[in-house]
Write a protein that binds this DNA or RNA. Structure first.
Lengths: 203, 203
DNA sequence: AATATTTTAAATCAAATGATTAAATTATTT
DNA sequence: AAATAATTTAATCATTTGATTTAAAATATT
């Protein structure tokens, strides 16, 4: 029985999942062959079908994880009723830049697969309602009743996430080696909160 | 001879290219089958190989066009020695939001294919040197000698391009129908230049 | 030792896919 | 009109691909 796994030997199932993460992440769904995953995992091809039913099922698991990773961390920050608006912006900036420095390919993977596989995946994450009723949303509304709070959410996420989405372009345009790029992202941790603050004050 | 096409009957070759644009754009390189393109073009499959040598060759043509479309328009604006910094920011914002409203899938396509196919495509566009020596770059440097001008370039492009990259997420999070989304992008044409201006002034 | 579970190797399917060929059709030139 | 070149088609190839199965081997569990 698949589901009855004794405590230690998740290993094979987990090895396959880990390999799937790696390969899907690198090549995207369509360009990935199940044989690539099996090879990367160092297991027999049949085991992939033994543990997961199909390529698509395995992908959905990985995809859900990645979406969770990309958007899950934001929930705790934006719903906190005890932090100021400025503190939230600071925390969001640092959280995203740190997390994306560790996982630079995450946003382009999620966003591009989202375009293909479509909307049913988005709906499975209840992030819409969470954000709309969050403390951050209300604080933005109080601060700038004249502007849709979503604009500022886009700006915060855009200024942190976009550089990673456009990383190959930016490195080429700026003649940056990977180290330079990281340095710039580190600089942005301090700059972005200041920029957003001044945005909010601009009449 | 392929290249000797009399003035009018580009039609078949152009029909294939147009179909390739449509299908590649929608599904990306890997998920696209040559038969999809042939069907979309209403031509026989063999014609694709007759006019273009392979799927990959055809893709490269389309990809170059799309990169040109995404980044080509910026050159004229940023290299203009007769416009102020503020004017350039305003022109860039309007240009990108208008262009991307017409081609919303352009950025995610280019950026995600760029990740796979890699760097040799970027190098074929001389956009790096152009930008570094541009009037915009110098103006930013004069304005804020303490901050790498690239940061502001990222911010300008990020605040215009990112919403389109993250469009499915944003629409879901904000409960926006396509019309709402367009309206917000329209709002950003006025907001972004103000925001960037205040960014530049923030000490 | 007996039984159940997990893993492997190998073979096989059916469908999809990129590419090619040879012949037919259509246009162009002589 | 005949000859030549360009365009289009249908059929076919050889691989690839996702998936499944079978039978045996290895590893745990009872």
């Amino acid at each position: 029985m698949i589901n009855k796994k004794s405590t230690e030997d998740l290993s094979t199932e987990e090895k396959i999942k880990e390999a799937a993460r790696t390969v899907f992440m690198k090549k995207g769904y369509s360009a990935t062959r199940t044989r690539d995953i099996a090879e990367e995992a160092g297991i027999n091809l049949a085991l992939l079908n033994y543990y997961f039913r199909s390529k698509e099922k395995l992908f959905e698991i990985v995809m859900m994880e990645k979406m969770q990773k990309l958007f899950g961390g934001l929930v705790g920050i934006v719903t906190d009723n005890d932090t100021t608006l400025e503190k939230k912006i600071e925390l969001l900036t640092i959280y995203y830049i740190d997390m994306l420095t560790q996982n630079p390919d995450l946003p382009i993977f999620v966003l591009s697969e989202l375009r293909n596989n479509g909307e049913h995946l988005i709906k499975s994450l209840p992030i819409g309602n969470v954000l709309q009723q969050s403390a951050l949303f209300k604080q933005l509304q109080v601060n700038r009743p004249d502007i849709n709070p979503l604009h500022f959410i886009i700006n915060i996420l855009g200024s942190t996430i976009f550089p990673f989405v456009a990383k190959p372009m930016i490195q080429a345009v700026g003649n940056l080696n990977p180290k330079d790029f990281e340095t710039m992202m580190e600089e942005r941790k301090k700059l972005i909160p200041r920029w957003i603050r001044s945005m909010l004050q601009t009449k």
